[in-house]
């Protein structure tokens, strides 16, 4: 168990923690907009952390091929970092344009 493994484990588990939180949030929040909040934020962060953990884990036996693979994984990270918040924003935007009123305190869950 060297220092690398510990970093990978910490990253992976914190990623999983955020992903779980996101899943719970999607189930627990009361309406469309608030549900997209965990879906957009926690899932992005969770997958960023998990992906970084994969990239580091892959570098365990260092070689040029492994480095390239890690770089590809980091490219996926960049892609998710761009795409996921944009998509969530787009969905919220569509909801606003379609005229869905946000939930306020005291209303029923939707």
């Amino acid at each position: 168990m060297d220092i690398m493994d510990i970093i990978v484990l910490v990253l992976l588990f914190s990623g999983l923690f955020f992903l779980t939180g996101g899943a719970v949030g999607i189930l627990r929040f009361p309406d469309f907009y608030s549900r997209l909040h965990p879906a957009g934020k926690l899932d992005t962060l969770g997958s960023l952390l998990a992906m970084t953990a994969f990239a580091l884990f892959n570098l365990h036996h260092f070689s040029l091929g492994a480095l390239l693979t890690s770089l590809k994984i980091l490219l996926i990270v960049v892609f998710i970092f761009l795409a996921s918040p944009t998509a969530t924003h787009g969905i919220v935007d569509a909801g606003v344009r379609a005229g869905l009123a946000p939930w306020t305190k005291g209303q029923k869950r939707r």
Partner: peptide, 18 residues
């Protein structure tokens, strides 16, 4: 018609070529 959203427009403009 409503103007397309700036964030979505920019995000897609970056992603589409790739």
């Amino acid at each position: 018609w409503t103007p397309p959203d700036l964030i979505i427009k920019t995000g897609c403009r970056i992603l589409i070529p790739f």
